[in-house]
Amino acid sequence: MSVSKDQVRHIAKLARIAMSDEEIERLVPELNGIIGWVEQLGEVNTDGVEPLTAVIDQKLRLREDAVTDGNCRDEVLANAPEAQHGFFAVPKVIE
């Protein structure tokens, strides 16, 4: 499969990375090179092979239900580029 300019633009949009036309044009052959290369996996017969789900055979641990965290608004907001009245502030969203 090869990736078109429109696809690269779409992917950039999905990934929320603003890109100029030149950047997109530069990325097309680069991504095609890498994607063409990973496609060699197509040679591997994986019939009946389950996708790996845990690299070390382990089960998920569950924690007990207790309030052990939170109540640290100052820490949560300390690094915010813009915080107002205890909220994070972002450019207005129109729903």
Binding site: R63, V67, G70, R73
Partner: peptide, 16 residues
């Protein structure tokens, strides 16, 4: 481990 009670002050029931 942050609390879930309804109606708390904004961003007070938030862990890292």
């Amino acid at each position: 481990g942050a609390a879930t009670a309804f109606g708390a002050e904004p961003n007070t029931q938030v862990s890292l």
